[in-house]
Design a protein around this nucleic acid. Structure first.
Lengths: 228, 228
DNA sequence: CAAGCTATCAAGTGATCTATTGACTATCAA
DNA sequence: TTGATAGTCAATAGATCACTTGATAGCTTG
């Protein structure tokens, strides 16, 4: 007979990764890392908690296999551990919205009234036609770490001062970190208040990147058949 | 300025679901429920813990939106809360294998030496040709709650006594709950010890079901274009 | 209604987790 | 070497969690 202890060990090991998602602080860190790799200090400031605490949570995430760490001179850079980690976080986030009314309510409270949104397919079509301007309203470092092709960086803080840069005869589409990020919502409200047609992109940068990747893979698999 | 409290509330709400995955006991319950709905008592027995404790963990899973509960006369039936919950659990499980060496080691310890496996595509082809026998070695109730089309139920306990039922001139493929379930491994070892060609299916029933569903959806989307 | 089964609740204890504080280490630059 | 910056460690107090035990509630059956 197989001992029960071995099975327990197995589930305990999986729970090691599960624990990563059990703390709101860690989720916030994951959410930030989904945008761009950062060092401890930046993460601490962005999430508004002490450096020591941030460091400890990052170590927990590291133990859970969700992030990688690399020393870079005097600082340590943490990054999400690959697409699988990102996918897992997004899956949890999305599942929580649809399964827990609590989450949806919290999201509404945080984001405020809903603003007009546009989906990926429609945006792609409009970009091809060239009759929209796409702006990335995240902080500049996140834009630099990766952004949608053709987007221009206008961090939300600077939007008010830089309205003139945007052509008045085009609709503006703003995107940010994802569905729970308020930047795009705020941007659209600001733009509309200034009398400009504007919508927000439903997806954020991480979702867009993954979608891009999977369509590429899909297209490739139509021509080349992969060997097992 | 938006208050930080609202963002915290949001992450706290998501962490509510995350907590579901932080305990090995709860993961074991999820794993059982991925096979078939059950009542508290059955789950307690199957996972080897007290009824009270099981009940409490189930309530935690319920609060996390991962399971549904329905009163059925004198007992209460718990079931996984839809495919999204299943997908999430499988995603966590798979991610943990690939990201944590710890998990892989625990799996090897539990499952013993690896046995020859067969993938979904190959099995489908062989089934079409009709030169394999597919057996479901899970407990009979799980088979009844759903199984692969064309499989025959031979619970692992009964396999030894029912060897004669299996045609000697066909290869046997056994499947069970999933990659971390020892039944199929054990079945293949038993069959091979009895001098019969046998392999295990890489997937378990839940994975198979989901794959079936997504290929169906895929086929459908080629003919009908879905409206947004 | 009483008995019997199933599930939940309530209380308590020991274990684990979280966040803070202050000390410590590593790296770089002067 | 010294100082400055970035990150980690160690100790701790308070909160939360896990599991047990014994009582209670809900449903069914006689």
């Amino acid at each position: 007979m197989r001992s029960a202890r071995e099975k327990d060990t197995l589930f305990e090991a999986i729970a090691l990764m599960g624990k990563a998602f059990a703390s709101p602080r860690r989720l916030e860190l994951l959410d930030l890392l989904a945008q761009a790799p950062r060092n401890v200090d930046e993460l601490a400031r962005a999430s508004g908690q002490s450096t020591a605490n941030t460091s400890q949570h990052l170590q927990a995430l590291h133990a859970a296999g969700m992030v990688t760490r690399t020393r870079e001179g005097t600082s340590v850079r943490y990054a999400l551990a690959g697409d699988q980690a990102l996918r897992l976080w997004l899956a949890l986030r999305d599942a929580s919205v649809s399964q827990l009314a609590e989450v949806e309510r919290a999201a509404r409270d945080y984001l405020g009234d809903d603003v007009d949104a546009i989906g990926r397919d429609e945006l792609l079509a409009r970009l091809r036609k060239g009759d929209v301007v796409l702006i990335d309203v995240r902080p500049a470092e996140e834009y630099e770490a990766g952004h949608i092709n053709g987007a221009r960086s206008i961090p939300i803080d600077e939007l008010e001062d830089r309205l003139a840069e945007l052509p008045a005869d085009h609709e503006v589409v703003a995107y940010c970190r994802g569905p729970f990020c308020a930047y795009a919502h705020d941007a659209v409200r600001q733009l509309q208040a200034a009398g400009r047609p504007a919508r927000r992109l439903e997806e954020g940068w991480p979702e867009w990147r993954l979608a891009e990747k999977s369509t590429k893979r899909h297209r490739a698999s139509r021509t080349t058949r992969r060997a097992t």
